[in-house]
Design a protein around this nucleic acid. Structure first.
Lengths: 196, 196, 196, 196
DNA sequence: CATGAATGAGGCTTCATTCAT
DNA sequence: GATGAATGAAGCCTCATTCAT
């Protein structure tokens, strides 16, 4: 009888820890030993599961994305109307909970790193491709129902997603003029202009 | 008459070099010796001009911003109509020249770093405050002339600026779906919707 | 009837593997896990059979020697005349087959290690003592039969054995001037000078 | 005015230290920090002069050879007769002084390592090529003067050099049957057989 | 002004060894 | 008998920083 896979458990544990440390101190200052400590294991154990620091971090980026998708699935599976789904989508990206803030910070680290890491570029591509498709579909849905104004759905999706990213950065970077509340209003204004 | 101190020149040289290295390898991998080599000086000289690595990098971020502003001043000082100025503004942010790409990459490094560096948060605040004011003013100008539709000018400025940042990241990160051309179209679509 | 313990087989397997790895990467780079992999077992199993790395390696050195002796026994048990036996002896030491090369390489590792390991010095002593006795006996035999010239048999044996070792090193180290063929000639010349 | 090259000094210091450590603990156990301590510097300084451990060690092997040659130059430049020069040559290789023992031990480390390091194979080739040429020349000289018996000089040189290497190993490895005295006798016997 | 030799703290990584299963 | 997950000690190497010149 196979031992209840301790492997998967430990791996997940380490990845969760990596995301936490990543969000807290950034990739630049992330030490493998920080990850180990946070995961409650030894330095060597981290390397038992991952070939090197780079692998841990990349896997953590991937994990961050997966959990991020998971958290949002209910929104799109909900039977609500397109406008409501878009608003829920935007709301889910507001960096207002520790969980969301952590996810965002990890993404910001990913972006800098992705500038030189094809593997991360691929991850980014997959993620954004998915968002664009989903959001565009919702928009098209809304247009079909006459709830949203005409216009290239993909283009509008790109506007919305870009806007969310750009504004989130400002919020995360602690801008006094761009707070979570302000970000929410700005995005909602965009959504309102989409209506009718 | 003593030559105007060679110091200023050396400093500028080092900052320029830092921005280059920053854009090329990222802050995480930036070594003081890389900067020195790029600046054509010695390791020790960098420390002669700057107390430590952090100082060099922060000064470089500041320098990157200053030169960035400088490059765009003509756009807003031009006597063109608001719509044209907005379009020129957007165009100037497309990461299509080596110079612009470098500036963007440096900004991306700044963002990650600013998450934990109040000094950089301040710099970001100054910069974005300025952009918002300028863009909002142009929009208001356009609205006053009846060229742009009604709406909170600051809100619209935030939408545009956020969108530019978010899309630029995708371009820089090498997205195959978000190229410079695509980014240009998406932003132009937004501007068009502003008109009438 | 219980199968003769699988233990002996496993042990032999591991020792064989150790010799192979030893010859391939050297003692310096030999890792227990390499041995395990080569032996087709697990890391832990090696430690089940041997207290520690040192033990495995020493046992492997011993095994290398034993198999080396075994391979040469036919030469001295053959009923051929002394000159022929000496020539066969030399020939058997030419590093011209994978098997012989491996044995030589393992010996070379042993020598470096023996500089600080009394246990290996003892092994070396046993081996060389045996060779000297055997070769000296053959020489004495040849002298008795009037086939070889006079001279201290042990001294001549030492000359021959030393020469073989020294030349083999050069061959193994890839000398372009000291090839297997050259080594063969040089040794044969020595043997010829022994004749009369 | 150029500073009196501290560089060369330090480098030599480090190489000397490396040879000592190499002879004492062997390459396998050699730690960069041992070298640093022995050289009276810091761990980092060693890496300031050499890219990595491998470089230090290779340079040390080279240094060991150079100094070894230097020590023997007088023997061949002496005006003595060929027989005397050969005897002096042999004597200079007897591992009877700390200096010579150290040199030999370093060579033994080199051999194991050279099995996988082309760079060291080249070094070995240069050295042995030189010895062969020198010794063969002396032998030819002796033959011309009628002091040594006929025979291929290079072949005889190879016999002598091989013998010295092989016997030295036994001495260094602490053989009770092959002491320095015994080695001396065995080689002298070979030289005597060369005469007339 | 400028240099570059020197340092040492600290990080990543390797790997023999242990031990629960 | 055998495994492989886990450990932690220890080594190599990097690199910001210092300082004598």
């Amino acid at each position: 009888m196979p031992r209840p896979s301790v492997e998967a458990e430990r791996r997940a544990q380490i990845l969760r820890a990596t995301c936490e440390v990543l969000a807290e101190v950034g990739l630049r200052a992330l030490r493998v030993s920080d990850v180990a400590k946070r995961a409650g294991t030894s330095n060597g154990t981290v390397h038992y599961y991952f070939a090197n620091k780079r692998e841990v971090v990349h896997a953590a980026f991937d994990d961050n994305f997966t959990r991020s998708i998971e958290r949002r699935r209910p929104i799109f599976d909900s039977g609500e109307d397109p406008k409501a789904r878009l608003r829920a989508f935007v709301r889910s990206y507001l960096p207002d909970s520790p969980e969301t803030v952590q996810a965002w910070r990890v993404w910001m680290e990913l972006w800098s790193e992705a500038l030189r890491e094809p593997e991360l570029q691929d991850l980014n591509e997959r993620v954004y491709g998915e968002w664009r498709r989903i959001v565009a579909a919702v928009i098209r849905d809304g247009q079909a129902q006459g709830m949203l104004r005409a216009g290239d759905a993909v283009e509008l999706a790109n506007q919305l997603i870009g806007m969310i990213d750009g504004l989130a950065i400002q919020v995360l970077v602690g801008s006094r003029s761009m707070t979570v509340a302000r970000m929410s209003e700005v995005c909602d204004a965009f959504l309102r202009d989409l209506e009718s």
